[in-house]
Design a binder for these strands. Structure first.
Length: 561
RNA sequence: UGGGAUGUAGUGUAAUGGUAACACUGCAGAUUCUGGUUCUGCCUUUGGGGGUUCGAAUCCCUCCAUCCCAGCCA
């Protein structure tokens, strides 16, 4: 059987290159090159899946390379989080861990050589002057007065830059390309700038640092990268990439290809804006379960498998688009439905008293952990005269199509008995505090000998045996599809109700078995996981990963309730 | 108005000169001890205009729209 899954444009390029012997040793080499200046987010998952995934598919390899050329923004904390996140996704770079900073010396020597060949010069223009000389989008730039500085002087000044003899901003090393190029990146791009900043890896060894357009292509060449895959905004940099990989003495020639970055509506996905949410204290940190960071979705309870499935469904192309948040939710639910163990937890408890059930009796009923799994284990649930049910599962005066509990109506308490409501007890304010009902002993196990049907089944928790837990209910962080589109400030579109904390949810005792990393479903309430930060043995805290689809809520809305 | 890219259902992605399709969303129904799951059906698509061709989403011309680029960020 030959399966004909359509190839995306990158796979076509690779298969074509492989077929035509354009790849050394017939082994493709890709790389994932994060800058360690923040936490990885869902957008990076796409890049990770593309780079590691392609290497896997074509039996090549994928390097992890930290693009650490700007010490002012980069930190060890980020390096560690990035590694952890990639591992969590299930990818392994093996021995191929690199840092652009590993190449600082080689880069420096190449720069020296460039100067000697008259292909680079030291410029003393200020940043503002450089901007003026650069020209505009439609007007060509002007040559810097320093462009014709002698090779000897360029060499001397660059050496002095390296030795720390000049302050930041005084000099800059530039490539001598073409100030009249219609591509601004080719108007003598900066190669090296002076920065008296301590680098997370090289410390104070260097006071000059190479720029991206110089470092990235050469790093790719050094590592033998064959396919350098990046996002669309680097298309304009490809000529600079090709310029750098054409420098004399550079033997290997990788090629750059660009794909569209991932956008999802109702999210912000730039490191700058995510960092801002953290700094302003709007969220609990980079790993807040509402954040689209990898550490955030992990804490939220999304599985790595569902994230990879999502990325594969999104596809790879060059069209800049926006994926629906609903697709992400679909992938999460589909995966969790198959793997989550079911438990009964009442989030908004209302006491239910079964008047004709013995006072001190406790019965145990067996429940399947996961009905989607043929080989699922089971566990026991205690049942007693006083229970909690969901407040939303009882109404004194129900609307049409409400088939839960109301006076005179019979429903099933999941796994156990049919009960019929009779009366309520209210407090001084008229709020129902107790519902009284009777049960039918004949219905034990959830069905009756006479075969009569009930329309509703409610989950429940024994009042005496249940355990109090905390549940954190999350909703979208932003109210609008494109945060900030209207006002220009994405903070204007924050959802004030993106986190609802329920402190007195009632759970069946089985909840004590829950471990960090378990995927759970609280029956009829959604998917949940243990919060890896806040939960402790005597104060269990759960995060709602996703709600269940709720067609009743939809119906209610349609009926104008 | 310089350069680089991109236009296929609401959204994302296929079809590479031969009957426009898949998934998500939405809608309707069936099943169900989760108003979940599962199952069935329905809705809606080639940016516009020319041309080449027996035949065009695909090739050509033209127009239009959208995105990216003027960091000593990546």
């Amino acid at each position: 059987m030959k399966e004909k899954t359509p190839l995306n444009f990158l796979e076509r390029i690779i298969e074509d290159d492989l077929a035509n012997g354009r790849v050394p040793e017939n082994t493709i080499v890709t790389r994932f090159p994060p800058e360690p200046n923040g936490y990885l987010h869902i957008g990076h998952i796409k890049s990770i899946c593309i780079n590691f995934g392609l290497a896997e598919k074509y039996k090549g390899r994928c390097h992890l390379r930290f693009d650490d050329t700007n010490p002012e923004k980069e930190e060890m904390e980020y390096i560690n989080s990035i590694k952890r996140d990639i591992k969590w996704l299930g990818f392994d770079w093996g021995d191929y861990e690199y840092h652009a900073s590993d190449y600082y010396l080689q880069l420096y020597e190449i720069a020296l050589e460039l100067i000697k060949q008259g292909k680079a010069y030291v410029d003393s223009l200020t940043a503002e002057q450089m901007k003026e000389y650069r020209g505009t989008l439609r007007e060509p730039g002007k040559n810097s007065p320093d462009r014709d500085r002698s090779i000897e002087e360029n060499l001397r000044l660059f050496l002095e830059m390296h030795e720390g003899k000049h302050p930041e901003g005084k000099y800059i090393l530039r490539a001598k390309i073409d100030m009249s190029s219609p591509n601004l990146n080719m108007r003598d791009p900066a190669l090296y700038r002076i920065k008296f900043a301590s680098h997370p890896r090289t410390g104070d060894t260097w006071c000059i640092y190479p720029m991206y357009d110089f470092t990235h292509p050469i790093s790719d060449a050094i590592e033998g990268i064959t396919h350098s895959l990046c996002t669309l905004e680097f298309e304009d940099h490809r000529p600079a990439y090709d310029w750098a990989t054409s420098i004399d003495g550079i033997e290997h020639t990788p090629h750059q290809y660009e794909f569209a970055r991932l956008n999802i509506n109702y999210f912000v996905m730039s490191k700058r804006r995510l960092l801002n949410l953290v700094k302003l204290g709007i969220v609990d940190g980079w790993d807040d379960p509402r954040m689209p960071t990898i550490s955030g979705v992990r804490r939220r309870g999304y599985s790595p498998e569902s994230m990879k499935d999502f990325i594969s469904r999104v596809g790879v192309a060059k069209v800049e688009g926006v994926v629906d948040y609903s697709l992400l939710e679909f992938c999460v639910r589909e995966d969790l439905n198959k793997r989550a163990d079911r438990l009964m937890v009442v989030l908004n408890p209302l006491k239910l008293v079964i008047d004709n059930y013995p006072e001190d009796k406790v019965e145990y009923f067996e429940a399947v952990d996961n009905p989607e799994d043929q080989n699922s284990k089971t566990h026991q649930i205690p049942f007693s005269r006083e229970l909690y049910i969901e407040r939303e599962d009882f109404m004194e005066d129900p609307p049409k199509k409400y088939h839960r509990l109301y006076p005179g109506n019979e429903i099933r308490l999941k796994y156990t008995y049919y009960v019929t409501a009779h009366s309520v007890v209210k407090d001084d304010e008229g709020t129902i505090v107790e519902v009284h009902c009777t049960y039918d002993p004949e219905s034990r196990g959830g069905s009756t000998p006479d075969g009569r049907k009930v329309k509703g089944t409610s989950h429940w928790v024994s009042a005496s045996e249940g355990i109090t837990i905390e549940a954190r209910l999350y909703d979208k962080l932003f109210l609008t599809e494109y945060p900030g589109k209207e006002t220009g400030n994405y903070l204007d579109d924050l959802n004030p109700d993106s986190l609802q904390i329920v402190r007195d949810a009632k759970a069946e005792p089985q909840i004590k078995q829950a471990q960090e990393g378990d995927y759970l479903q609280f029956i009829r309430n959604g998917y949940f996981c243990v919060d890896n930060k806040a939960s402790s043995e005597d104060h269990l805290v759960f995060n709602r990963t996703a709600t269940l689809k709720d067609s009743w809520a939809k119906l209610k809305k349609k009926m104008g309730m």
